[in-house]
Design a protein around this nucleic acid. Sequence first.
DNA 1: CTCTACATGTAATAAGTTACATGATTGC
DNA 2: GCAATCATGTAACTTATTACATGTAGAG
Lengths: 185, 185
Amino acid sequence: MDVKTLCLGILSRGDATGYEIRKQVAEGPFSHFFEAGYGSIYPALGKLLESGLVACREQSQDSRPDKKVYSISTNGRLALIDALSAPAAPDRVRSQFLFTTFFAHLLSARQVERLIAERLAWYCESVERMERCSETVCTAERPAGERFTHGLGLTVYKAAAQYLEDHGHELVAEALKLERMDAAD
Amino acid sequence: MDVKTLCLGILSRGDATGYEIRKQVAEGPFSHFFEAGYGSIYPALGKLLESGLVACREQSQDSRPDKKVYSISTNGRLALIDALSAPAAPDRVRSQFLFTTFFAHLLSARQVERLIAERLAWYCESVERMERCSETVCTAERPAGERFTHGLGLTVYKAAAQYLEDHGHELVAEALKLERMDAAD
DNA sequence: CTCTACATGTAATAAGTTACATGATTGC
DNA sequence: GCAATCATGTAACTTATTACATGTAGAG
């Protein structure tokens, strides 16, 4: 499941340019479980074009740069289904935040407090971002899978935010205690 | 936050061999937010040794292969704190599972059913794996950060598993409906 | 006049994965 | 006898990130 497959998936929902694909990954319904920048999307589209899994038509626009609109081919749809049918690979997660909280005792109380506050803000932003695309994903016309994936993301974010609100103070409390002990020495 | 920093973090809790580090990442308290295999851990330890952030003593054992026990140096501890103090980088998540569920309408009901069941099993395993190391992480002697990180991971897994139990059937129901429609054609 | 949005791409670099290579011991 | 655990490492490959490179138009 690489960026090529991601592009196939997005194109299976409708034609798009590289720019639009990137927007769907950054802000749209894929944002909570995939990341990709231009530097991986454009090369991926190039390879898909080479192997005939997508087609491309150039569109000149006035008062806008030309754009290349990609559309998925029949072979592309088959390749997508193949990729989806492959044995489930485990999710890849690497959390700088959790790594940092694990070693919170090495930071100052001020740092810990900021860490928690920033993360809470980030969860709020993420939830807002996701709710902004709820209207396009959570309608009856869209497949159930889209609603499901969206709902699972929201649920997880909300559970995590709640945990932070419930337990964040414990981290700060310990940091303050350690600082008092240091001061006593 | 790369594998080098991960090694520094783990070594800050006590000396370890490359093999033991890998075990902590695969099964220990780091398993839910970091991944690393031998192929990244050994080279990382090599680089840390070169730059003097860790020290290494060789230990021969009888009836076991020799091992290299690494320990963090003072500079290593400083480097770790530096890395922890760096501005929070967003978590990296790439979920094959969520990608697949998003496009569940392209799969057969059988495939969807298996997907959900396997994922639920995976969550159960993950929760069990994490609870197995609860005893070493969730004691009063360990820093609050370890308990916090552990608790957040468990909370998120449980919330996700609950969501699957609550909404997984919707996905299967749609798949069955699509199959009936196909059969009708 | 500055910032954001639109729009595409390449090159250099960094990072990590997979496969390869080896080998003893312990428990079933 | 076979699988699992302990134990270390390299080389080739794949992949993705970052920085570079360029340019228009509309909104404020």
